[in-house]
């Protein structure tokens, strides 16, 4: 897990739902199947809702990690168009 290299990173700190997911979804739509998106965020609610919505859309959540007092990183692999 430590050596997953994201193909694209977005910083959505400061955004709240549903824009956290809207931005993440728009980013992953632009990527190719198999690529990994890294999402940096600080809205706690979205650390649960983004992984759930990404899985509902058929993608694979690889990691949800708190990296400091305020921020999280989510890694999602695009599984389908």
């Amino acid at each position: 897990m430590q050596d997953i290299r994201p193909d694209k990173s977005i910083n959505i700190k400061g955004l709240v739902c549903p824009y956290t997911f809207v931005k993440s979804k728009l980013a992953i739509e632009e990527m190719a199947v198999g690529e990994v998106l890294e999402i940096l965020l600080d809205y706690p609610e979205a650390t649960r809702s983004i992984p759930k919505s990404m899985e509902d859309h058929g993608h694979r959540v690889l990691k949800v990690e708190k990296i400091n007092d305020t921020d999280w990183i989510i890694l999602v692999r695009k599984e389908r168009e």
Partner: peptide, 15 residues
């Protein structure tokens, strides 16, 4: 993004 957010979050629509 704000105006169409309720469309974009639908799997059948998206960006």
């Amino acid at each position: 993004i704000h105006r169409y957010s309720r469309h974009i979050i639908l799997p059948e629509v998206g960006g």
